[in-house]
């Protein structure tokens, strides 16, 4: 049989849009079995991409909102094993690209090869592992990711040097996650001083990869600003706060509508 090359859903989205809205939520939050239904509501509401968080006990790059949701999810019984079980039916309900975001230790324990196999099996398009350094990824992980056609997403921050940004761009696929300020998730909101200059500096570097801006994107204004300087934005903590208040289908749709005009 001839091998069929299917375009990764992430790449496909970027052909069609330059204002991608990627929404993050923690798997198994607020209720263990919510993962698929939240994902479906988000797609129906108009989200262009999803990032599902694998909860971890010690998420150093995240602020209190996401840490609390992770803790709740762990108490609910979420594990990578359980998550892949839930995601078996992902592609029956969701057509937009889906990424997994998780810290490296649970992935190591699950087994990196097995993890990539499962991602491909359930239809995951990309992975974000904030505490996996680039060199380590290239030396020990890249082969598995490439074999399965899964994008690994790297982050850059305002303090990342130009040389390193070029290096990251060289080794990236899918998109580059542009961290909006020197911060953890959900720490600083609104458009900060100096931020636009930073966005512009990155924009003018003419990187080969698409860019999504994340951290501190919380409403229509910050989303639209991000879209001016990049290919879209990622919303995390603000949506987790929404789920905490009201995780119903209608509330999720209301939330996304509030951001996407």
């Amino acid at each position: 049989m001839e091998k069929l090359t299917v375009m990764n859903r992430i790449d496909h989205v970027f052909i069609e849009r330059n204002d991608t809205l990627n929404v993050y939520f923690t798997a198994g939050y607020p209720v263990l079995d919510d993962t698929i239904s939240v994902a479906r509501s988000l797609e129906e509401a108009g989200a262009d991409m999803l990032e599902i968080g694998i909860p971890f006990s010690d998420p150093v790059a995240d602020g209190p909102t996401i840490q609390e949701s992770s803790q709740q999810a762990l108490e609910n019984g979420m594990t990578i094993e359980v998550l892949f079980g839930q995601l078996k039916s992902l592609r029956e309900h969701v057509t937009i690209p889906v990424l997994l975001m998780g810290y490296v230790n649970p992935i190591i324990q699950y087994g990196i090869e097995r993890f990539c196999d499962k991602c491909a099996e359930v239809g995951i398009d990309g992975v974000i592992v904030p505490d996996l350094p680039m060199q380590e990824y290239l030396d020990h992980y890249e082969a598995n990711f490439k074999e399965k056609g899964i994008h690994n997403i790297f982050l850059i921050s305002p303090n990342t040097t130009e040389t390193r940004i070029r290096e990251i761009d060289e080794n990236s696929s899918g998109f580059i996650y542009v961290v909006s300020s020197s911060s953890i998730t959900g720490a600083k909101t609104g458009v900060q001083e100096g931020q636009l200059a930073y966005y512009q500096r990155i924009q003018e570097m003419k990187l080969k990869n698409r860019r999504l801006i994340g951290f501190g994107i919380s409403d229509k204004e910050t989303y639209q600003t991000a879209c001016k300087y990049a290919d879209g934005a990622i919303i995390g903590s603000a949506f987790i706060k929404q789920l905490k208040n009201d995780a119903s289908d209608s509330a999720i749709k209301e939330f996304v509508k509030g951001i996407k005009k």
């Binding site: 150093v60 790059a61 490296v104 904030p130 505490d131 996996l132 350094p133 380590e136 790297f154 982050l155 850059i156 921050s157 303090n159 990342t160 040097t161 390193r164 990251i168 961290v179 020197s182 911060s183 953890i184």
Partner: peptide
């Protein structure tokens, strides 16, 4: 090794 988020890399 140094398993740190990119935000800590410069420091």
């Amino acid at each position: 090794g140094a398993y740190i988020p990119e935000m800590l890399y410069p420091n």
